[in-house]
Amino acid sequence: MTRAVEHRLVGVRPRPRGRTALSVILFGAVALAILRLDHPTGLLHQGGGQALARIARSVLSPDLSPAFLAIVAAAAMLTIAYAVTGMTVALLIAIPGAIIVSGALIDDRAVRWTVSTGARGLFGALRAIHELVWALLFLTILGLTPLAGVLAIGIPYGATLARVLGEHLQNVPREPLEALVTAGASRWQQLVYVRVPIASANMFAYVAYRFECAVRAAAVLSFIGLGGIGYRLTLSLHDLRFDRAWTLIGALVVTIAAIDVASGRVRRRLTA
């Protein structure tokens, strides 16, 4: 910040050294990627243009018949229910996980570092695998059961939440913590009376954001055969009913926007 001010005063802004290298790398990477494509020509497949025209035309005439809207509403409810159940599992993992990652309860420095880094690595590996890959794995293990969908959302989201919430618990201001330490508070008391209250607004915001993501994830989980918006969408696309597909897509967008607005309201009340 001070550097920027200084340069504005002098009136000259020297170009940071890394920038040129970065530009070369980024443009080079995209150029290489384009060169590796096999068939730069013949992009559309036969009838692709007509399909595009049909898809585009049906945006203007989505299927809004009451019978179909009832199906859409039920599918949206189920998708939200999957997101809620998945998030319950995620929070069950994340609450103890975040405390372990933050290392807030461990006195010894070396032990704290080892446990925190180990937990971070484990959660990182769980998180690296996309929820749909988890879904495919659970589908293979358990067969087609709603539990596969719930666990597929719960495990990677729990890992992500544990890491991020753990960092929120770690990065609280020192002064209130030290005040409690001098008053003789235990690490549990520091956690409950300082770390959690200070971090709560940010933690809520992140959980709400992940819930929004969970709704999107739940919508595509139905790709493996579980009910919900994605399942209805797959059916509509198989029948080439693009008008119905757009209705379903609209329902998904509206659902996610509604969650965004609602969580924004709660967040404002928490921070106010």
């Binding site: 992009l43 559309l44 497949h45 692709g48 749909l132 595509v220 696309l237 897509i249 998904l252 967008v253």
Partner: peptide, 25 residues
């Protein structure tokens, strides 16, 4: 932007394969 963002990649992919040849692009 809101619509592009609200629809998951996978659903865009399901629509796109009606138009483009399957593959990297």
């Amino acid at each position: 932007h809101a619509i592009l963002r609200g629809v998951p990649e996978l659903i865009w992919a399901m629509l796109i394969v009606f138009v483009l040849r399957p593959g990297i692009l």
